[in-house]
Design a protein around this nucleic acid. Structure first.
Length: 215
DNA sequence: TGCCAGGCCCTCTTTAGGGCCTT
């Protein structure tokens, strides 16, 4: 994969390509010893999935029964999986310096940063959070969990939840739905990564006024 | 059995508290 270096990571990075990713982990906090057990990601280019990445990884210790039940990933499945270090090195090559998207991105960013730090690797892409943007665009949704938003937007899925690739595919579909809604509802002809990032930072009260100004 | 984190947002706020969301 060609790696590009620019002085402005948001404006100069290829705006038509983003990586949508999702981690399954042993718990909620890498600072408390939790590790990644699966990474899934899709590459979106010009609104289409052009590449995928999915890999289980062995965290080096047994995962809890809660996580086995929650994700469907068992200790037996992880026993023969490659190490986190091996998988994350491959994943770092996959994401390159592209911009990144995740649902509740602060969670995935913490694990991405922690796992890449262990192998002395880093990335230059910027993160956008589909949950924060959905909170602005879909204020009538019952809540802003990924599964709820998938139902709210009538996004097709195969019924698999809490697996890394399945969740990243659904997040990618949600991302594209938000782009489409911005084009249709606010006549934004070319909503890009930077605009979606800025939408997340607007207040709930002024989001419509902000979008109309953008249009 | 129930809790463990962290960032963001909203409001009955700003010298704060609590809910949401992720595994």
């Amino acid at each position: 994969m060609i790696k590009l270096s620019y002085s402005n990571p948001i404006l100069c990075r290829p705006a038509d390509t983003v990586i949508v990713l999702d981690f399954e982990t042993t718990g909620l906090s890498p600072t408390q010893g939790d590790r990644a057990i699966e990474i899934g990601a899709v590459m979106l280019k010009d609104g289409k999935v052009v590449d995928r990445f999915q890999q289980l990884m062995n965290p080096g210790f047994r995962i809890s029964g809660f996580i086995e039940s929650y994700t469907g990933i068992s200790n037996a499945m992880l026993a023969d999986a490659p190490s986190c270090e091996e998988v994350m090195a491959q994943f770092a090559d996959f994401i390159g310096d592209y911009n990144l998207v995740a649902h509740n991105a602060s969670f995935d960013q913490r694990f991405l940063d922690a796992e890449l730090k262990r192998i002395n690797c880093h990335y230059l892409g910027q993160f956008a959070c589909s949950m924060l943007i959905a909170r602005r665009l879909y204020q009538a949704a019952p809540n802003h969990k990924l599964g709820s938003l998938v139902s709210y937007k009538n996004i097709q899925h195969d019924g698999v939840f809490h697996r890394a690739l399945a969740d990243s595919e659904m997040t990618a579909s949600l991302w594209l739905a938000m782009l489409e809604d911005l084009q249709q509802d606010y006549q934004l002809h070319s909503p890009d990564f930077g605009l979606l990032q800025s939408i997340a930072k607007q207040t709930k009260a002024n989001i419509n006024q902000y979008l109309q100004r953008q249009g």
